[in-house]
């Protein structure tokens, strides 16, 4: 019984939140890694792209709610998602046409593009704050839980409850669907194959008649979709606040680098590595250990390795270790 309780506590506080957070990071890191693979620069504006995409979803959700449209037990935001993606695609394509294209044609150094993306960060951030303000916004509706802690306790008779939030379920399912669709696209379709060819060897791809502008356009469209989905899922699961998306940049970049920049599989693996390290290192293990240890050995403290205030330090620590030990990442990325 104690062992079961320990497992339930572990699932409740570590596994489920870790998987949900990992999916969000993986989607974010996929966007970063695609931009890196095709356009060959680290896109610092990705966090704020997520914020802007999520903001469009928030606004459309509010509009739907005012019209009385809802998805029943599911959050209305899911219905708003496709529209938000279209808006974000438009925004990114516009940004590419007006800003990035100039430097691409000039074959500017990647670091210049990084600075340009900083400028874009500024602008996106300003636009987001201008439209929706810097504060927390709530756009979650529908059923809050798939399994409630109390129902679970009554059902199983265990002392520990297991809560499974709707948003966590949606995050995991959406992430799986998106990743399958993305890999199908990259591996099976003509456009996906031309993207991979372009990423592997630009000159060869050009020689075989691949239109670079088309590849770039498709990349931005996919990145916009990924960023919006990641942003909305994160906003639903935690809460929507523009500044937090900028702070997500660090774990997202860490995920992409740990997995190997430019490698989509790596981005997903990296997302889960970072998420689980963050959750396990900042979780107070007492609750689990109480069930596993004999009574006289029960820990007196919280058995928390680091306070949650330092969750950035975890992604950063892993990032440093990877840079020192294996700068190409777990799955061989493009960079050294």
């Amino acid at each position: 019984m104690d062992f079961l309780n320990a497992i339930v506590a572990l699932a409740n506080y570590v596994l489920i939140p870790g998987i949900a957070y990992g999916s969000q990071l993986a989607l974010g890191a996929l966007g970063v890694t695609l931009v890196y693979g095709i356009l060959r620069f680290s896109n610092f504006a990705h966090g704020d792209t997520m914020a802007l995409g999520a903001m469009s979803a928030v606004l459309i959700t509010w509009l739907f709610q005012s019209w009385g449209i809802s998805l029943g037990p599911l959050p209305t935001a899911l219905l708003a998602l496709p529209f938000a993606i279209v808006i974000t695609i438009g925004l990114l394509l516009f940004t590419d046409r007006t800003v990035y294209k100039f430097y691409r044609v000039k074959k500017a150094k990647p670091v210049i593009l990084v600075i340009v993306s900083l400028g874009i960060t500024f602008i996106y951030n300003g636009v987001t704050r201008f439209i929706i303000g810097p504060n927390d916004q709530n756009f979650l509706d529908g059923e809050r839980f798939i399994i409630k802690a109390r129902t679970f306790k009554e059902m199983t008779g265990l002392r520990e409850g297991l809560a499974f939030k709707t948003t966590q379920g949606i995050t995991i399912v959406t992430a799986i669907v998106v990743v399958i669709a993305l890999f199908w696209f990259l591996n099976k379709t003509r456009s996906g194959k031309s993207m991979r060819a372009y990423s592997d060897n630009e000159d060869l791809a050009l020689l075989s008649g691949i239109n670079p502008e088309r590849v770039v356009m498709i990349t931005w469209m996919i990145v916009a979709a990924l960023a919006t989905i990641a942003g909305v899922l994160y906003g639903l699961d935690k809460s929507y606040k523009p500044l937090t998306y900028f702070q997500l940049l660090l774990p997202i970049f860490a995920s992409a680098i740990v997995g190997g920049l430019g490698s989509p599989v790596g981005a997903i693996a990296g997302g889960f590595v970072i998420a689980f390290s963050e959750v396990t290192v900042t979780y107070a293990w007492k609750k689990v250990l109480v069930y596993l240890m004999p009574e006289n050995l029960e820990p007196s403290g919280l058995v928390q390795l680091l306070s949650t205030d330092y969750k950035f330090a975890v992604s950063f620590g892993i990032l440093l270790i990877v840079l020192l030990v294996k700068p190409t990442g777990l799955f061989k990325g493009q960079s050294v």
Partner: peptide, 15 residues
């Protein structure tokens, strides 16, 4: 390492 890595590492240390 690559120039971008320094950027990301400094972003982290600042946070």
């Amino acid at each position: 390492l690559r120039s971008d890595y320094l950027a990301i590492a400094t972003l982290g240390i600042a946070e």
